[in-house]
């Protein structure tokens, strides 16, 4: 982490699921984390994590408060308008398990409510019932030489992805970690292990975003050349 990591604030969607585990991981990484239940709580965060949980349940919980939270998240991921002088840049979002389902453009055999921003097709519950849930040591080049302790709980896999999607890890059943620009997904749950590397990788994406944002602000403040 470089010197400005201490004032990073990451929101964790806290409608249902293991959001407390993500908050604990983020705090161990040395950044601030806050639970997000309402659209207005998305202001002043530098990135968002969508945790593990039950997607059908969470899809019923997105309409409380002053504005539907999914459209507010979508506006942060795919900003269309310009605010003030600077361009608004897409905010980094990391989805674990259920989070990957909400980010996916397509869910095999389902039309449930989702953000549909990442060019992936996911298959829910790809391994079968809980007795097929498992842990395994996964080699992930982006995280270094040491294998990552990946825990899959009634997990989805990515079965198809577009050209902009970078595959970071795949097993026989499908892709289990992928990135598209500022979006990161894992089918497994690093938040219930003691290994901080996936969260640190995401925080690296957040720092890139903050750097780009401050560059954009600086560029927009360059005075117009004065005509003589």
């Amino acid at each position: 982490m470089n010197q400005d990591s201490t004032n990073i604030v990451i929101g964790v969607l806290a409608l249902q699921g293991d959001f407390a585990e993500h908050i604990k991981m983020l705090e161990q990484c040395g950044v601030s984390a806050k639970a997000v239940r309402y659209a207005e709580e998305l202001d002043h965060i530098d990135g968002l994590i969508i945790p593990g949980g039950e997607s059908t349940a969470v899809a019923k919980l997105t309409d409380e408060g002053s504005a539907p939270i999914f459209s507010a998240i979508k506006a942060k991921i795919a900003p269309s308008e310009k605010i003030g002088a600077s361009s608004v840049l897409p905010m980094p979002v990391y989805g674990t398990c259920m989070g990957s389902i909400f980010l996916a453009k397509e869910i095999e055999g389902s039309s449930q409510g989702r953000l549909a921003v990442m060019d992936i097709k996911v298959k829910r519950n790809a391994f079968g019932p809980q007795r097929r849930s498992f842990e395994s040591d996964l080699k992930i080049d982006a995280l270094g030489a040491e294998a990552f302790p990946a825990v899959f709980i009634r997990a989805p896999v990515i079965v198809e992805c577009g050209q902009k999607v970078q595959v970071l890890s795949a097993i026989d059943e499908g892709i289990v970690m992928a990135r598209q620009d500022t979006l990161l997904v894992t089918a497994f749950h690093p938040e219930i292990t003691n290994d901080l590397r996936v969260h640190q990788y995401f925080l690296g994406m957040v720092q890139e975003y903050r750097q780009a944002l401050s560059n954009a602000v600086r560029d927009s403040q360059v005075p117009e050349p004065v005509q003589v």
């Binding site: 039950e54 349940a57 809980q130 849930s133 395994s136």
Partner: peptide
């Protein structure tokens, strides 16, 4: 793609199912 050795039914895997149900 990598061939993996899945470990099913571990304490971690069993307790994790309940963790995903929290708040529900």
């Amino acid at each position: 793609s990598t061939v993996i050795k899945p470990r099913t039914g571990t304490k971690l895997v069993k307790e994790a199912l309940a963790q995903m149900l929290k708040g529900g």
